[in-house]
C-alpha cells in the first residue's frame, strides 16, 4: 500500500529545483505532490510521482543524489477536523511522523520510521490509504 517517494539532494540555488522538474517533464513523469525544504545551504526536494521507478533511473543516470523512500498516502475528506483525526490515530499508535506534506486534492503523504507498522496501525481506523496505482492514475 505504501507509495514510493523520490528524494533529491539539492543545493539551495536558483534553477536547481527547476532542473529536476525539467528532467521529469522530458521523461513524461507527472508530479502528484511535492515538498521542498532547506537547511540554508542545501535542501531535499521530495516528490510523489506517477512513475517513481523511472524517475529514480533518470535522475541517477544524470548523476543526481536521489533516493527512493516509502511513505503512506492518506485521502482526507475535505472537511474540518479530518487532518487532526488522522494524526490522532497515528499518535495513538505511538508512531512519530518524521515529515508530512499534502498532495493534490486532499491527500497527504507521511513519512514515519516503520512504514509497514504504521500502515497496519491505520488499517483498523476509518482512514483511506491511497495506493501507488491510484496515485499513478489521474485522480
Amino acid at each position: 500500500m505504501a507509495v514510493s517517494q523520490i528524494s533529491v539532494f539539492l543545493e539551495n540555488h536558483p534553477g536547481h529545483l527547476k532542473n529536476i522538474l525539467d528532467v521529469f517533464e522530458l521523461s513524461g513523469i507527472n508530479v502528484r505532490g511535492y515538498s521542498a525544504s532547506d537547511t540554508g545551504d542545501y535542501g531535499i526536494a521530495r516528490f510523489i510521482l506517477d512513475k517513481p521507478d523511472l524517475a529514480l533511473d533518470v535522475l541517477r543516470a544524470r548523476g543526481c543524489a536521489a533516493t527512493l523512500a516509502q511513505v503512506l498516502c492518506i485521502r482526507l475528506p475535505d472537511k474540518a477536523g479530518e487532518l487532526a483525526r488522522v494524526m490522532e490515530a497515528i499518535s495513538d499508535a505511538g508512531i512519530n511522523v518524521i515529515y508530512s506534506y499534502s498532495l493534490i486534492s486532499t491527500i497527504i503523504a507521511i513519512h514515519v520510521d516503520d512504514t509497514a507498522f504504521a500502515e497496519a496501525a491505520l488499517q483498523n481506523q476509518p482512514v483511506e490509504l491511497v495506493s501507488q496505482d491510484e496515485i499513478s492514475k489521474i485522480l
Binding site: S7, S37, R46, R60, C64, A65, T67, A69, I98, H111
Partner: peptide
C-alpha cells in the same frame, strides 16, 4: 548519490 538518504 549512494550516500544520500532522504534524511536531513
Amino acid at each position: 548519490p549512494d550516500a544520500f538518504s532522504d534524511s536531513f
